[in-house]
Structure formats: structure tokens, C-alpha cells
Design a protein around this nucleic acid. Structure first.
Length: 873
DNA sequence: CACTCCCGCCAATTA
DNA sequence: TAATTGGCGGGAGTG
């Protein structure tokens, strides 16, 4: 392509041709360039005349308009062509320019060519979506600005939004570190959680109230009264005392961006209209909002929306209301993860859990002030690149909150609910999905490091297929992304010589063999309920199988049935795919089985589907699921699928257990998008029942499990295995019951850092041959868990790292010699702070907030659940 | 004309 | 104090 371009370009800009750029870029960006669109990027490289930005600057100075325009055009062209339908025009345009004199060029590049969205795409094209952990990609603002031919100011617009999603972090002046999408799902989860806290109630309302106006008026009032909510929100408002300091921050594009994203994540329809968003984001009450302010907000939202669109997270649509057609954006990014969390947490969040989380989230998001988070460092903490942060000038923001938001969100929801027609915007529709697929087998990031001694049977080959890079990647099969599909089709990518499978960080899998002991007891009635939520696919495998897997791909017939059964299994699988994340409404009584059946009308199923739709590439999930299926899973699924056996999930499970000797079993949850951020590991021994076969159901948490951030998993092999059985399990809601012991590994750990978690005991990384077995779980899992956790399942939400941290069970190996991470990269402190439970945080404020909200939250949650259950959309 | 949103002034923050 | 960031809103491009 480069050549091509040059040939094309050469005539135009002789000067520009310099190879150097290429080298530069390479240096900057790791090899992996994303997708085709990236190519576009490549062009820019060639374009850049000078290796040094300065030079460029000079040149541009010399012949400002012309040069810039040319550059821009060139840069843009590729993108436009690929993305936009206008192509024809643009092409002509380009051609003309090329051939003709500069004069033509002067016809300024259409405004579109200068759009922030386009610029952002160019920007993104320069960096891999999933950079290797080893490579640190630093972004020099000056350089990027010069290369892209724009003023720095514009780069800030992009970077700020990216930073809000933790795709980049500020390392130093003029320097940002590119993280890529590795943490995106986690970030989104967090945002979702935070969003739920802030806006969750609204959702409920919307459901109830159909009348928009009603909301505006009365609802607003009602909501306001909840003073407690306020506390949750850290966003300081201008009025606050600290206003001066905070004011800027408050309005910051970053925060706006996060809030904006939250709205999407909270919204059932995933559609948010600009005006509503603007209203919500405006601090003042809606009524007071003056027009100018509103206008300004909208402008900003466009800026943010452009970037998000470039990221492939949203797309433009129009909603038709009574009043007319309004511009809106629809979330097309991963959704499930969020759902999962909910589910996991259980509907019934204990009062504690929710608040806590909320608090944590809040901190991150909002508060810059308090902790060192100034720049959202909290999120970044784990990342290698992290560097100096700006000082936080002021204190904690005043507790403030925007009631408005709530009601705005309500409104939004209502609107959505009310039935608006949504039209995709033609403009954006063409946008290609930004995600690059990089599930490269070889990629270090995705590969699990082999332990010196393969302790565990590693994930079977089957598994590998499962893991895809974050939800998106999983979708590879999607037609749009042929390349991906190919790779993925292959089942597991094993790294040569390595016992472990490579998988994208997001993917989940797992397993360890555990002992079986009480398993049966574990199957609880709850399982059924929970089952719904619970992981879709779980399988119990005989030990033999495990071994096989470990060493070899699943192809081997470890389990008789496993290998074959494709069709039926697939179907089941698909459903199962849905990650826990999906909001599966917990339905109280429903047995999972129904869900398990494909096509069932179960609400959960519906949701799942919906999500899929939302996903950029709908097809992907299925494929992913297929791939992902393990033999075990397949078996299970097959069983589930079997019409013959519709036994309730619990029974089902138990049955299996009975049939098969308990031995080390593996359970893995598919890494669907929802799950992407977290991985669950269940010991086989654990209550199988808990993990209902039913695909969509969430497993009951009663089972001891370990949740690990996907990132963590990716980097190293996990060992876990709480073999103990938990007695409790009867948590009706399926939330993780107290019984379940859960350990979270912190994402904070650098991906590279190996983490081992065992419910019972610690395992040294290298050593654990059979950690699970060896370690005995204390009788009561609760011990390990923080009180909070024990109390409320909800607290345990998968996603929230918050919960993590309980020292006892968790082992963090901070710096394994093996990992190259720089000391900086590892920042336990941050993480801890970030994730800590409120109690651990010790932040009084947060704590208070939590408490205050607890009751409320719980109620809201339930409401939500109900709603979700009933309305599949 | 309504939407979008580019552009760049200039203030807040940092270094 | 100089430089970096980034809020903000005028007003232009687009349909």
C-alpha cells in the first residue's frame, strides 16, 4: 500500500516522501497494526514528510494551507474511502488534487475530512488495539499532531476521551501511553456500575412511567430528595466550595465522556439522545439550564461522540418521538460485561455491596480529587506505562450530585422505552468496526505463560478458541472480519511447547480440578435460579480429560460425548455463550433449563440476543461460542440441550456429578463479551449444581470460585482451586451467596504478574501442581471473604475489582522475576485503593455514602432486575 | 434553517 | 514565567 500511495502521492508531494516516517511509526506503534483501516494510517506515515515533527512544523509554516491540506487529505482519504460511502466523491476529489495543481487542493477539504471522528480514526489506526504488554507505546502529542496535520488542541480532544476509557494514560507532559483495548471491558464495567448507581433508579422509573413529561416534572422532584445519592457522586459541582479547583475537572471532557458512556450502559435501549445527555450532563437543574449552556454541552457531546464512534462504541441514530426526530447515539460496543456483573452480584445485592462498588467506581470516575486518581490513575495503575500524574489540586470534590442526571436518565430511558423509532444514521452507519482483531496466537499478551511445570492441566485446546480478545474480538467470525474468523476457527491456538493455551485476555476459561467432595450438597435449589444467571457453559470433566487437555488439544476424546455433537451443542452453546454479563434478569423461579434450550423464550435468552445485536458484529458471538466450547462444555451442553433431559439444572448437575466421578473438573465460563472482563474459575468439585448447565444462567455463586480479571489471566496461568465445598448455597437469588468464597485477583496486578488464587490456600505460582486439591478450604469460605462480600453477593460482582483485595486468600506475586515489568508499572497501592472495599478504603466519605445508599440501591437493583426480566426489549 | 462541529481564543494548570 | 491543557462558544460547513 505504501508503494501504492506513494506512486499516487508522489507527484503531489515530493518532499513528503520520506521513509523515515515509517520507521518512526513502527517505533511508536508496535507492529500490530490493526485492521485494514489501519492501513490508512500507514499512509499517513509515508506522508509525513519529516521524521521530525519540527520539520513538519517548519514546512507547514512555510506553506501553511496548502501543505496541510494536502496532508490532511491524504490522510483522510484512506479512511474516508474505507469508511464512508461518499467514497466516490472523495476519490475524485483526491484524484483531482493529486493530478491537478495544488489549487484544487485548496478547495478545502470538506469539513468532513477534518472531522474529529476522522482524525480520531487516524489516530487510532496508529496504534494496535491490543498492544503487547511488553511494548510500551508512548504517544507524543506533538508528534501525533504534526503527523496527523492538526493542531494539538484537537489531539487533546481525542486523547481526553480515550483517557476516560483508559485506552491511554498520561505519562508526562506531552506524553501519553497507549494501552489499547485490553482494559476496555473492565473500564466499561466500572462505568456501568457507576452508572447504575447514579442513574440506575432512573431506569426503573422509565419502566414504570411511560410518560416522558411525567418524568421531567415529577420524577425530578422525587429523585432529588434522595440526598444520599448525591454523596455517591463525587463530581463536584461548581457551586461547591472547591469549585474553582474542581470546576475545570468537573466539566472536563473526560468526565463528560465517562458519564456519557455510563448513560449508554445504563440505558436499556442503549440509545441516548443528545439533548437528554446534555441535560443530564449539565450540572444545573434542567430548568435552569440556559440555552447557551445547553448548546455548549451539546457541542462537547458531539466531540465525544465522534471519538466514541471512531472507537466503534456507538453509532449515530435518530430517534423519532412525538416531537420529531432527534439525533441520538446508540451503543454498539460490548454490553454484556456489565450485565454480568449485575447478575453475578445477584440481584439482591446486599446493601453493602452495591454501595461499595458504587463508591469505588465513583472515585475513579469522578473524583479526581481524592486520591491520586487525578487522571483516573486508578484505572491505569496497573498499566505499565503509568507515569507521573498531575497533581491534584484540590481536595475531594464536594459531594454533589446531580439529581438531574438521574432524572435525565430516567427520561432517557423512558424515551427509549416509549417506543421511539430508531434510525441509523446514514452517515455513521458506514463506519467500519474499529476493532482490530488481534487474537494472534503468538501474541504474548494473550498467551498464558507456561508455568515451568505445568501444574494444571491447562486449558484444553478447545478452550482456546474461546478466548478472544475482548468481546469484540470474539466476534471475529463475523463476516466483516474474515481474518479473525480464520484464526479463530482454529480451535485453540496453542503456543508451541507451551502447555497453556493462548487466549485473549478477555476470555475466560478455566479450570482446575478440584476435589470433589461435597459437591452434591452444593447443588442447591438456588442453583436453578441462579443457574439462569450462571455461567452458560460449564463442564465437568473427568480427570483424565483434564490431563489430556493440558497436554493436548481437546480433539482427543477425553470425554466420550464431547467431541461430537456439534450441532446441538452449538446451539446450546450459543446461548450459553452469553456471558454472565448479560443482564439476565434473575428470575426467581424460573428454571434455567428452559433457557438452556435454544430459542427458548426465556427472558434471559432474549436479553442475550439483544446484546448480541448490539454488538458490532452479531455473528461473532456465535462463532466464538462455538469455538470456545470445550469438550466438557459441549458435553454438558449437549446434555442440557437434550430435550430428553430437561431436569432442573440442579438435578441435572447433580446427576452429572453422580455419573461421573468427581475428579478434577473444569468449569469454564465462556468469555462472551459480558464476561470478558472477568474470568471465573470454578473448581470442578464445587457445586456443579451451582453451575447449572443451563447456558444462560448464572451459576450460583455458592460454588467457590475465583474470579480473575481477564487481563490477569491472559498474562499468566491461574491456579486456583478451592476444592472445598460450600455448604451454603441456598441463596435464592442466585447472587453469590455468602457461602461462595470468592477471590478476586486484582487487575491491578500487571498483566504480567502471575496471580494465584486459591480459596483455601496459597499456591506458589510455579509450584502448584494440584493446588486445588492440596489446599483445603477452610470450612467456611466466608472467612476469606471480607465481611462485605460475605454479606452480599452483589458485592462480589465479578467486575468489580473492588472486592478484591482480601488478603487472605489472594496471593499476589508482584514481581515475578519473569516479568519484565518496570517497577512503575506495578502499583499495588493504586489498585488497592481503587479496588478496596469501602471499608478497606477507609475513606469515610465513601463509606458514608455507601451506607446511605445501601438500602436504596438494593431496592433499585431489584426493581431493575424485575424490569429487565420482564422486558427483553 | 437545523445540525454538526471546526477552530482557535484564552484561562486554568503544570512544569 | 513559560508551556501545556483544555473549556468554550462563535460561526462556518452540510444537507
Amino acid at each position: 500500500e505504501n508503494i501504492f500511495d506513494r506512486s499516487r502521492m508522489a507527484p503531489k508531494t515530493p518532499i513528503k516522501n520520506e521513509p523515515i516516517d515509517l520507521s518512526k511509526q513502527k517505533g511508536c506503534t508496535p507492529e500490530r497494526n490493526p485492521i485494514t483501516p489501519v492501513k490508512i494510517i500507514d499512509r499517513p506515515q509515508p506522508d509525513p514528510w519529516t521524521p521530525t515533527a519540527n520539520l513538519k512544523m517548519l514546512v507547514s509554516a512555510a506553506s501553511p494551507d496548502m501543505r496541510d491540506r494536502e496532508k490532511k487529505k491524504e490522510l483522510f482519504r484512506p479512511i474516508e474511502n474505507s469508511e464512508q460511502s461518499d467514497t466516490p466523491d472523495s476519490l475524485q476529489y483526491d484524484i483531482v488534487d493529486d493530478t491537478t495543481v495544488d489549487e484544487f487542493e485548496k478547495q478545502r477539504p470538506s469539513r468532513k475530512q477534518k472531522s474529529l471522528g476522522l482524525l480520531c480514526q487516524k489516530f487510532l489506526a496508529r496504534y494496535p488495539n491490543y498492544p503487547l504488554s511488553t511494548e510500551k507505546t508512548t504517544i507524543s502529542l506533538d508528534e501525533v499532531a504534526s503527523v496527523l496535520g492538526v493542531e494539538r488542541r484537537r489531539i487533546y480532544d481525542i486523547v481526553n476521551v480515550l483517557e476516560s476509557l483508559h485506552l491511554v494514560s498520561r505519562v508526562a507532559k506531552n506524553q501519553y501511553c497507549w494501552h489499547g483495548r485490553h482494559n476496555l471491558s473492565q473500564t466499561l464495567k466500572m462505568l456501568q456500575e457507576a452508572g447504575e448507581l447514579q442513574y440506575g433508579e432512573l431506569m426503573t422509573f422509565q419502566h414504570k412511567e411511560q410518560d416522558l413529561e411525567y418524568k421531567f416534572g415529577e420524577r425530578k422532584k422525587e429523585t432529588i430528595p434522595h440526598s444520599q445519592d448525591r454523596s455517591l457522586l463525587d463530581f463536584s459541582e461548581p457551586d461547591c466550595s472547591s469549585a474553582s479547583a474542581n470546576s475545570r475537572k468537573d466539566k472536563s471532557l473526560r468526565i463528560m465522556s465517562q458519564k456519557f458512556v455510563m448513560l449508554f450502559l445504563v440505558s436499556k435501549t442503549k440509545i441516548v439522545t443528545l439533548d437528554i445527555a446534555a441535560k443530564i450532563l449539565i450540572e444545573e437543574t434542567q430548568d435552569t439550564v440556559d440555552h447557551s449552556k445547553f448548546k455548549t454541552k451539546v457541542r462537547r457531546l458531539y466531540d465525544i461522540a465522534n471519538v466514541l464512534t471512531s472507537l466503534g462504541l456507538i453509532k449515530k441514530v435518530h430517534v423519532t418521538e412525538e416531537r420529531g426526530r432527534k439525533p441520538a447515539f446508540k451503543w454498539i460496543g460490548p454490553v454484556e460485561f456489565s450485565r454480568k456483573t449485575d447478575e453475578l452480584r445477584g440481584d439482591k445485592p446486599t446493601s453493602d455491596s452495591l454501595p461499595e462498588r458504587g463508591a469505588c467506581a465513583q472515585y475513579q470516575i469522578c473524583a479526581a480529587g481524592k486520591q491520586r486518581f487525578t487522571r483516573h490513575a486508578s484505572f491505569n495503575g496497573a498499566q505499565p506505562c503509568e507515569g507521573p500524574r498531575r497533581k491534584v489540586s484540590s481536595e475531594p470534590n464536594s459531594p454533589h450530585q446531580e439529581r438531574q442526571d438521574e432524572y435525565c436518565s430516567k427520561m432517557i430511558n423512558l424515551a427509549a422505552v416509549c417506543g421511539q423509532k430508531i434510525e441509523e444514521d446514514t452517515r455513521n452507519s458506514s463506519v467500519t468496526s474499529p476493532f482490530s482483531l488481534l487474537p494472534v496466537p503468538g501474541d504474548s499478551d494473550f498467551c498464558v505463560n507456561p508455568l515451568p511445570q505445568a501444574v494444571f492441566p491447562v486449558v484444553p485446546a478447545e478452550v482456546p478458541s474461546l478466548s478472544l480478545p475482548i468481546g469484540i474480538s470474539s466476534q471475529a467470525p463475523h463476516p466483516s472480519m474474515p481474518a479473525a474468523s480464520k484464526t479463530e476457527n482454529g480451535k485453540a491456538t496453542l503456543v508451541p511447547n507451551q502447555p497453556f493455551l493462548c487466549f485473549p485476555s478477555s476470555s475466560l476459561f478455566m479450570l482446575c480440578g478440584g476435589l470433589q467432595e461435597n459437591n452434591l450438597s452444593e447443588t442447591l435449589p438456588t442453583a436453578g435460579d441462579k443457574g439462569n444467571r450462571s455461567a452458560e457453559a460449564q463442564a465437568v470433566v473427568p480427570p483424565a480429560v483434564c490431563q489430556k487437555r493440558s497436554s493436548h488439544k481437546c480433539t482427543s476424546p477425553s470425554s466420550p460425548a464431547d467431541d461430537e455433537e456439534p450441532a446441538a451443542k452449538k446451539l446450546t452453546v450459543e446461548q450459553s455463550d452469553l456471558p454472565l454479563s448479560l443482564v439476565v434478569p434473575k428470575e426467581p423461579s424460573e428454571s434455567p433449563k428452559a433457557e438452556s434450550t435454544p430459542g427458548n423464550g426465556c427472558p434471559s435468552a432474549v436479553h442475550l440476543e439483544t446484546y448480541r445485536l448490539d454488538l458490532a458484529s452479531p455473528a461473532a458471538p456465535e462463532a466464538a461460542s462455538k469455538e470456545s466450547l470445550d469438550c466438557q462444555e459441549q458435553e454438558k451442553q449437549s446434555q442440557n440441550a437434550d430435550p430428553d433431559e430437561p431436569p432442573p439444572g440442579n438435578e441435572h448437575i447433580s446427576k452429572e456429578n453422580a455419573n461421573q466421578p468427581f475428579q478434577p473438573q473444569y468449569l469454564y465460563v465462556q468469555p462472551t463479551a459480558g464476561l470478558s472482563s472477568f474470568n471465573f474459575l470454578f473448581s470442578a468439585s464445587q457445586a456443579p449444581g451451582a453451575i447449572s448447565l443451563a447456558a444462560n444462567q448464572l451459576p450460583s455463586l455458592s460454588v467457590p470460585c475465583v474470579m480473575v480479571p481477564s487481563a490477569a489471566l491472559a498474562s499468566f496461568p491461574l491456579v486456583c482451586s478451592p476444592s472445598f465445598t460450600s455448604p451454603l448455597s441456598p441463596v435464592p437469588d442466585g447472587s453469590f451467596s455468602a457461602a461462595a468464597s470468592m477471590n478476586f485477583s486484582m487487575s491491578s496486578l500487571a498483566s504480567t504478574t502471575p496471580v494465584f488464587i486459591s480459596t483455601t490456600a496459597m499456591v506458589t505460582p510455579k509450584v502448584s501442581p494440584a493446588p486445588s486439591v492440596d489446599l483445603q478450604q477452610p470450612a467456611h469460605p466466608a472467612l476469606h471473604l471480607s465481611p462485605v462480600l460475605t454479606r452480599s453477593c452483589s458485592a462480589v460482582k465479578l467486575d468489580s475489582p473492588v472486592c478484591v483485595g482480601h488478603p487472605v486468600t489472594l496471593l499476589k506475586l508482584q514481581q515475578p522475576s519473569s516479568t519484565p515489568l518496570t517497577p512503575k508499572s506495578i502499583r499495588p497501592a493504586h489498585h488497592e485503593a481503587f479496588f478496596k472495599t469501602p471499608g478497606s478504603l477507609g475513606d469515610p466519605v465513601a463509606w458514608k455514602k455507601n451506607e446511605g445508599n445501601q438500602t436504596r440501591n438494593a431496592s433499585s437493583v431489584q426493581r431493575r432486575l424485575e424490569i429487565s426480566g420482564t422486558s427483553p426489549d
